[in-house]
Write a protein that binds this DNA or RNA. Structure first.
Lengths: 166, 166
DNA sequence: TTGGAAAGTCAACAAGGCTGACGTAAATTC
DNA sequence: GAATTTACGTCAGCCTTGTTGACTTTCCAA
């Protein structure tokens, strides 16, 4: 039985030691997860905060500032600083809302899409390598545990982003 | 076939869309992962950096400052600031090395152990809940993918911390 | 005995979080 | 039509946690 994760009928025996290993796995893996984009970003004047904004604008083109605030979980002032530099540098475009003119709909410009592609290519390459090394069953489990680890509100955000998936 | 992760004989069909979902899963799950300790820490004057130091000193009592630097991947000055406050507040003790008096061996005081327990109890509770909700097979896969996602150097750190495990 | 490693410290700086306050335009409600 | 609420932007100031660079002290080892 591998690493004592299970007993007879799917009951889990979870020692503190096993849980601690999961915790450290998250810590070290997250470092790897962000390492490649971080390397690209530091050559420009951007950081992880810019990456996150770019990612979610790419994911949901036309999203509003409020939506982004909810997803990223930061303050308006903090996001604004990041968004400001992306708009000034011509990576993001903010169009006045059509039905509600108070809103700003956010889009990546071609230049923004270029950077998005660079960043996500790097991140996907690592993810793909990890998936291949681990195999299909592991991938399924990986996603299942991560989803269970999210706060309910974040899980909703995550799942709503997955709409349109088969 | 669940979510198209596999074809016939274990070959993975990984669309960009699937990889992106894995990326977002990491993002949202990491937020959940740190949420509980963060809530505890903010009531005191500590942050995530203090938590990391406490965690690894607890994990390897008597570890040196250099070891900690290698594991945490920050600069000496950055770690020193955190360590300084923990020592001043009586959570960590730095004993002059026995064989090499330049080294400082780090230990948690009883007060430090109290905080460590609070933090790890909270973090383990979430991890345990996620593990239970996902099931044993998923847990196995979770750990496998995370390990594959680490940088080789970090993987060694991770695995060396696991020595002594059966 | 001298070179270099380990550790600590001081100073300065930046990114990216935060709070609070204030302004404006647009939408909504009364 | 007036008052209120909403969405967004911005100014000012603070904190944590990362960085670089320079310098000192201690002390092991060649």
């Amino acid at each position: 039985m591998a690493e004592g994760t299970t007993g007879g009928e799917g009951l889990l025996f979870l020692t503190d030691e096993q849980l601690r290993k999961g915790i450290e796995a998250m810590f070290f893996a997250y470092r790897g997860f962000t390492a490649d984009p971080d390397r690209i970003l530091e050559t420009m004047d951007y950081g992880r905060a810019h990456h996150r904004a770019i990612h979610f604008i790419h994911r949901s083109p036309g999203t509003t500032v409020s939506n982004l605030l909810a997803i990223l979980g930061v303050t308006k002032q903090s996001l604004n600083r990041v968004l400001r530099s992306l708009i000034d540098d011509g990576l993001v475009e903010a169009r006045v809302g059509k039905s509600d003119k108070r809103e700003r709909n956010l889009y990546l410009t071609p230049k923004g899409q270029d950077l998005e592609r660079q960043l996500s290519d790097a991140q996907r390459a690592r993810m793909r390598a990890a998936y291949r090394a681990a195999g299909p069953a592991a991938v399924q489990g990986f996603r299942t545990v991560l989803e269970a680890m999210m706060d309910p509100e974040m899980r909703r955000q995550y799942q709503s982003l997955r709409e349109g998936e088969k």
